[in-house]
Every structure is written in structure tokens, then in C-alpha cells.
Nucleic acid binder design. Structure first.
Length: 298
DNA sequence: ACCCAGGGTCGTC
DNA sequence: GACGACCCTGGG
């Protein structure tokens, strides 16, 4: 199973940049030809668009078609969902058009937990670098087309890693959080398999909140971006707070905006699609900021 | 050289 | 419930 290929018809709800650079994942990198290569599970995969096809190619552990369908959630009808969101108001419509090709991935729960603990008070480039170093140090090596890749280490593989080891990888004050959470999971104080079976989202969130380094925002990201797949949550970070204030609340001091107020608004406007709405808004607002800087540089 | 901010959480009051 | 502290890095 060293190299497999799988193709599907092009789809407007599948844009590489939108999927891989909307902040949900940290292990996908753009290649010189515009395609993206990433690692998930024990798979190395390259994705590109060519001649009205989406082409998946890589070193997959199991059947590539199955892996891809699950990871990219290809059975989900985004057209229908986007239509519902677009009808909510002009803001939503605008951001859905902007992030038209976004899909929420089915990412491994454990990897998502650790990744978003690292994300706390951090920026995306640095988060990616830290995760790369962790994988390089403790993951398994995979070779594909003469390049070397590393899997995300399992809890077992992090068992003997010390707080200082984490600090040396550049984790900063998050070192102890990673250490504690890893051991809580190893000791089964939080059972990830049971979490996946639990239906009550609130119960899952409470359990996640017992993990070190997992607060409300990180818990919601885990619920939304992992294979727990809870679309009704609405993670509130600095960008979402900003955009919700600018669009709906209009408080002169954005840092003073009440979180409960944002949550109430999100529930009222977006209902059980809040998570996806949050992603379109986040992506749209953050890229607006980046565009502003690029412009200023010229 | 200095200050600021980043997909926040934690301990303390 | 508010408040400051927290590692590190890149940019003004």
C-alpha cells in the first residue's frame, strides 16, 4: 500500500486553500505546484485539482478511497447547508461566498486535543512549527516518493516525555499542560473511546474541560474539528469576538464584549450550524486582516 | 531597543 | 466573576 491514487469530480465546496488554511488543521503544507501535502493517521496524502478533477495521491495505510471519504467528509452536502446559512443575513452570505470551499475535516480526536492545547495564546505559524517538532521527535517515520514524513505521536509514544522535553521543543508555558493531559489520557481518567460514543455534547464538553490546558474555547474547537463532529458549538477566540462585535454588537471596546452575549447571538442566528458559521466568519475576518497588511506593505 | 499580539488557560483574589 | 501572568516568535 505504498502509493495509491483516487480521483473525484471537481466540486465547488472543496477548495484546497479554504480547507487547509482556515485554521482547523496544522499539518498540511502548500507545495510548489499549488497542491497540498499533509499527514493524518498513518497516511501521507497529496491533494491537487487538475482538469476538473480532485486528485488524491499518497501512502495510505488502508484503502485510500475510504480514508479520503471519511477525512474530508465527502458525503456531506455543503450546498444545502450553505444555502441555509446564506439566507440568515448579508454578513453570513458574504462570508460563505468568501469561504466557499471550506469543509470541516474529520481529524483524530487525540491529535486535535493536543493541537488545540498548543494553540492557546499562540499564532498559527508557531503552532505548526511546534507540532512538526513533536512529530519529528516522537512520531513514526513514513516515506513517500523519497520524502520523509512523521506521524503524530500516540499517547503511548509521549509516555516518557518530560515537561522539560516539551519545553525544549518550544512549547513555552504549555509544556506542563501537554504533559498532564497526556498522562490523564494514558491513565484513562479521560477515555477517548467512550467520549466518541457519548451522545450528549454537554457531557463530552465537561469531560474535555477536565483536561489540563482545555478551557471553553479549546474544548469547542475539539468538539468541532475532531471526529466528534459537533457543529452546534461556537468557539470564541479573538477573531470571532472581533467579527461578531463588528457585525452585530458594535461595542466601542471589543475586549469588553460579553461572551454570553456572543453565545446567545450565535445560537439564535445560526442554531445547530453555529460551528460552520463560525468557521466562515473566522476565515473571512482573518483574511481581511492579512489583506490589509499586504496592501500596507506596497 | 521597545512594544504588541497571537484560534486562552490557570491560579488567585 | 474579574485580573494578571505565562513561553515564545515575528512584526511594527
Amino acid at each position: 500500500m505504498s502509493n495509491q491514487k483516487y480521483e473525484i469530480e471537481d466540486n465547488i465546496s472543496f477548495e484546497l486553500k479554504d480547507i487547509f488554511e482556515c485554521g482547523q488543521c496544522f499539518r498540511w503544507n502548500k507545495q510548489e505546484d499549488g497542491s497540498y501535502t499533509g499527514i493524518f493517521g498513518k497516511n501521507v496524502l497529496n491533494v491537487k485539482k487538475e482538469n476538473n478533477k480532485i486528485i488524491f495521491q499518497g501512502n495510505c495505510e488502508n484503502n485510500i478511497e475510504k480514508e479520503v471519504n471519511k477525512y474530508f467528509d465527502l458525503d456531506k452536502n455543503y450546498e444545502e447547508i450553505k444555502e441555509i446559512l446564506s439566507k440568515i443575513d448579508d454578513n453570513m452570505k458574504k462570508s460563505v461566498i468568501y469561504g466557499n470551499g471550506i469543509r470541516i475535516l474529520n481529524q483524530d480526536l487525540w491529535e486535535t486535543i493536543i493541537s488545540f492545547i498548543i494553540s492557546a495564546n499562540n499564532n498559527i505559524p508557531r503552532i505548526k512549527k511546534i507540532i512538526d517538532r513533536i512529530c519529528y521527535a516522537y512520531g513514526d517515520k513514513i516515506i513517500w516518493k523519497d520524502n520523509v514524513y512523521y506521524t503524530f505521536p500516540t499517547p503511548q509514544q509521549l509516555k516518557n516525555v518530560t515537561v522539560q522535553d516539551f519545553r525544549n521543543l518550544g512549547l513555552g508555558f504549555r509544556d506542563i499542560r501537554l504533559f498532564e493531559t497526556t498522562h490523564m489520557i494514558l491513565e484513562n481518567r479521560v477515555n477517548l473511546e467512550e467520549l466518541k460514543k457519548e451522545n450528549d455534547t454537554e457531557k463530552v464538553r465537561e469531560k474535555l474541560l477536565t483536561l489540563s490546558g482545555v478551557g471553553p474555547k479549546v474544548a469547542d474547537c475539539i468538539l468541532l474539528f475532531s471526529d466528534l463532529k459537533r457543529w452546534e458549538v461556537f468557539p470564541i477566540d479573538v477573531w470571532v469576538r472581533r467579527v461578531m462585535n463588528e457585525l452585530y454588537i458594535h461595542n466601542a471596546d471589543e475586549t469588553k464584549v460579553n461572551k454570553k452575549e456572543i453565545e446567545r447571538l450565535a445560537r439564535e442566528k445560526f442554531g445547530n450550524l453555529a460551528g460552520l458559521a463560525q468557521q466562515y466568519l473566522f476565515y473571512w475576518r482573518m483574511n481581511k486582516e492579512i489583506a490589509k497588511f499586504e496592501k500596507a506593505r506596497k
